[in-house]
Write a protein that binds this DNA or RNA. Sequence first.
DNA 1: CCAAATCTTTGAATCGTTTCATTGTTACGA
DNA 2: TCGTAACAATGAAACGATTCAAAGATTTGG
Lengths: 343, 343
Amino acid sequence: MNRSASIKDVANHASVAVGTVSNVLNYPDRVSQRTKERVLRAIDELGFVRNDAARQLRAGHSRTIGLIVLDVGNPFFTSVVRAAEDAAALQGSAVLLGDSGHNASRESNYIDLFQEQRVQGLLISPVGDVTARLDVLRERGIPTVLVDRLADENQYSSVSVDDDAGGYLAARHLLDTGRRRLAYVGGPASIRQVADRLQGARRAVKEEPDATLEVLDSDGQTVLAGRSVGNMLVERGRADLPDGIFCANDLLALGVMQSLTMTHTLRIPEDIALIGYDDIDFAVSAVVPLSSIRQPTEALGRTAIELLAEELESNNPRHRAVIFTPELVVRQSTAPAQDVSAG
Amino acid sequence: MNRSASIKDVANHASVAVGTVSNVLNYPDRVSQRTKERVLRAIDELGFVRNDAARQLRAGHSRTIGLIVLDVGNPFFTSVVRAAEDAAALQGSAVLLGDSGHNASRESNYIDLFQEQRVQGLLISPVGDVTARLDVLRERGIPTVLVDRLADENQYSSVSVDDDAGGYLAARHLLDTGRRRLAYVGGPASIRQVADRLQGARRAVKEEPDATLEVLDSDGQTVLAGRSVGNMLVERGRADLPDGIFCANDLLALGVMQSLTMTHTLRIPEDIALIGYDDIDFAVSAVVPLSSIRQPTEALGRTAIELLAEELESNNPRHRAVIFTPELVVRQSTAPAQDVSAG
DNA sequence: CCAAATCTTTGAATCGTTTCATTGTTACGA
DNA sequence: TCGTAACAATGAAACGATTCAAAGATTTGG
């Protein structure tokens, strides 16, 4: 219930000036050993804790960084958030997290809040078109780094993942393990990620003259959507089936796997190899452990913080767009047929 | 790059006193229509945004609430966080989120940070023994509400879920659908949740004289752990098998389901019914949609905020421990045998 | 038309920190 | 012993909002 102790109380208690207490906290070298000890004792005895609002007011900006993601429930973002928090902590900042939930007005509210809080900078995975607002923020000295979205380097710094490369990686892996009749499962094609991954897969398939790629449109990116595509495949004649399937994400792949393994006529990976995208936790514990493409979420979060730090330091108008390449994770679902039958 | 406009700039621009601008923002009724318009125009023209640090300094406390969870990646907490954010927004507060990751020192860092920020109050799902720290916070006027942990009402308010009731609900449901030879899968027994759910299940089984409950210890709470318990069951003689299995969480249940369905000798739910706990997203899209026990996460988050508001309003030393009862979600994995064979 | 009551507006004081010019202290060589 | 340099400590000013007593303007009733 006591109002908490201020730096003034500490100064009185230690019989020094307030400036000295401040120096003990911020520039310990400027203070003599004796005085320092006295002050520290007083701090301890009074249980003094700095008031961040006052520091901030004086400094003109806070030590927090705003981070707005599309969905905290999505493991992709959860992981980015964690990495960003850790990286921020290293440089003495804290992350204020906002979840827009794909909702432009929630997103806007968070931008308001962060502006009132005078955050040092903003990391955002935007829903709507927020460029106008971000421009205002920049004029006010609050730089932004876009997350999971490629930005024009003249405008903003950004961190993103190369989905085309990911698609290439997945398809190339199927080809490398001997598959030739590939299928891509994903949809709707209007989603950039879905389209880019397909494009990358096409690129890989073109490298092998005898390889083909069939595109199977799915109704969304869920396990159920995958299952219905899988059921459709099961009904086909065996000769007509692909021997390697690449799904736009792991949920789809798990759905396809459910369909194929339920009817005990088709085996994964002997008859059909299967690879997903995202490498969610469940991939490793599927009935047949699922190969996948892992996005470098930790690097995304860390780098976003680093780019923001760059923006804060230099006043140059040049920005950087860092594009990461995802990583292939090989598991049993794409094991070469001979390896499996040998085992 | 411009330092952003202050209330003083607005006052000059509108040719009024700073107090008037403040009144326009906080007590619009005290200001005449003409003046108000002039001030609002000035605010708009200068793009003025309140400096929260200054408000906070004057007010002595912030408009933020600290929330420390064990793991933001866990859907249970993700959902609690969301609900808390929404409830806080309704009362004009923002939530500062911290992820302790089951790590006592990270937890402690967040408490430090929140204390410096002078949060209004703290919601915490504690890792270590933080009662000493929380007592200090309370003395300083920062009340705490414990989340997902039952607290002594003389000490703290808390919101928690009755795991015993959840266990009872699950077992009772298996019994109600005609199963009599039940099994409980979970471990290690040292985890409170695991033990409480078992206790509830035992209670239900005692109500049916002809029912039995076998306890199968699992090595953790993962899909893989569930699968190895499942494999062990598959090897048993058919007469020796349970006809209803209750797993301490959904991951275990999904693992058990994988084992049982892979060997096409046992059918779910005809031969064995299966129910999990937590109702994770995957439960609905399992090969056989999984029945489960849903925890009222939204209610937890919302109520935690409400209890905190109570603490902030009244100065009474009495606290409240709100205990929620979980909810049964019935899906195909526990359908009565006759229903399924009929369909 | 005046006094009283009501409504508006004013601006200095305040919150707790950091900064920095100034003052005070100590040590050392000449 | 004195002058100087290096080091310590001081405390007023500033950050930007809110508050509130007081002054000023306007309305009301007689």
